[in-house]
């Protein structure tokens, strides 16, 4: 029961972090919330006895992804003051609007990202649409929740013969970490593909950036 409670509290925090990341006006706040969110998830993975995933999540989510975001933000829209180009391209009157006061909290927020929001009813209508879409998705998924097995139940198909095989066979092979055994030995082809995804990513990123520089 302790585990359940712990999980519930942790998940509450994680969802809260996600909400903050979603609603924050400044990109820095969003990224900070996102980092916290990833760390929180890593802890959830630990509680769910998935240390390998936790380690990866902490390193990837909270570490690498956030770092990549930071360097790209720094390279593009920046963190604090509005960009010079922006002031050239947009009339200064746009900086003065009723919502300004509510944003003061996000000192580090990029002004540029919120110039146009909240100015007109059209935006609010757009937001209403977003809420509807998101609610539909969440609602649809919630409908399936009762059909899912109780969290922590051990009599689900997932604990069937296949998993049994993995556990016994990796013992015979002398690999203690079953996750590693599956990753490399049993589902090595997936991992091969995954390595390819990683390579694709770097090739893709370089190709994209090179093309930009060739202009």
């Amino acid at each position: 029961m302790i585990t359940e409670l712990l999980v519930a509290i942790l998940l509450g925090l994680v969802v809260a972090a996600a909400v903050v990341a979603a609603l924050a006006r400044g990109i820095l706040t969003t990224l900070a919330a996102f980092g916290a969110y990833s760390l929180g998830l890593a802890v959830v993975w630990l509680v769910f006895r998935a240390p390998d995933v936790a380690l990866t999540e902490a390193a990837v989510g909270a570490g690498v992804t956030t770092a990549l975001f930071l360097v790209v933000v720094a390279r593009t829209i920046g963190f604090g003051v509005p960009q010079q180009q922006r002031q050239n391209s947009t009339p200064s009157s746009e900086f003065v609007d009723g919502d300004e006061a509510t944003r003061v909290g996000d000192a580090g927020a990029s002004e540029g990202t919120r110039l146009r929001t909240a100015v007109t009813g059209a935006v609010r209508q757009g937001r209403r649409r977003s809420v509807v879409v998101a609610s539909l998705v969440t609602g649809g998924l919630l409908l399936t929740v009762p059909a899912l097995p109780v969290v922590g139940a051990a009599d689900t198909p997932g604990f069937g013969p296949v998993t049994e095989y993995y556990l016994t066979d990796s013992a015979t092979r002398g690999i203690d970490n079953v996750v590693t055994a599956i990753l490399v030995v049993y589902r090595g082809f997936d991992t091969f593909g995954e390595i390819a995804v990683v390579v694709t990513a770097v090739v893709a990123a370089v190709a994209v950036l090179n093309q930009g520089e060739e202009r």
């Binding site: 240390p51 390998d52 380690l55 990866t56 390193a59 990837v60 570490g63 690498v64 770092a67 002398g174 690999i175 203690d176 970490n177 996750v179 590693t180 055994a181 990753l183 490399v184």
Partner: peptide, 24 residues
Amino acid sequence: TLFHGTSSVGGGFQGGVIAAAAVI
């Protein structure tokens, strides 16, 4: 992490990402 992938928590991904994190 990298070298203990077979016997305990860790493995190629984790090790690789953490190594990269060091550089970052």
